[in-house]
Amino acid sequence: MTQGPVLLSVRGLRKSFGATEVLRGIDLDVHERELVFIIGPSGSGKSTLLRCCNRLEEPSSGSIIVDGTDLMARGTDINLLRRRIGMVFQNFNLYPHMTALGNVMLALRRVLKKPRAEAEEIARAALARVGLADKAANYPTELSGGQQQRVAIARAVALDPKIMLFDEPTSALDPELVGSVLATMRELRESGMTMMVVSHEMGFARAAADRVLFMDQGEIIEQGPPTQIFEDPREARTRAFVQQINRH
């Protein structure tokens, strides 16, 4: 597969919470249009890695460069940069006091300062893209978990991000609702979006990921194409983890 230019570059990233070191020197390049899938046992640091990539978590040391801009540099306007890094959360985190449309429009209006009509047009297009054009006027409590997560994806997509981070996007969903969210992510991937996904959906990884990263105890243990990681892992820890997952 031909690789595009590097979009996200992480070097020597470390993160400690008090005395415990959660990330112990991560080096990682994500290329344009690439889907990087991160697996690992709980507590391995995969969510923290993702959250460092838009500085929701403040790294202890190391560098992160997104689309040519140094995330850690003093002069960087983090809020401007963040709108180019979309994030989707495990618990959706939709704003309960706004409709689906309002959720998608907020940052368009208040961060990008788009006029109402234009913001609404963009927001409706984003909702249509995730298959929820007819739910624009509904409040989050009136939507199923799968629909809420798709609104959350639309909220991120509407800002036209360069890269999207997915933090266990289907973990909080009932099994029958997972499919719709994965289908939306598939569609996004096919449209050429660069994505980093932390998830346990191995089927999705096999079908859609370019590269799978296995993390344990704050380090990247092994990485490679999905077939290699799932069928022929080199490291013992990876093998043990993959076997455990397959048993379930």
């Binding site: 809020n79 963040r82 994030m87 208040r110 961060v111 909220r155």
Partner: peptide
């Protein structure tokens, strides 16, 4: 906390998040 994080991840600043997302709730 997720409400703060979601709003911040879309580029809203501290006051914007407080005013548009947190205070109304």
């Amino acid at each position: 906390k997720g409400q703060w994080e979601a709003a911040r991840s879309t580029g809203l600043g501290f006051l914007g998040t407080l005013g548009w997302v947190v205070l109304p709730q």
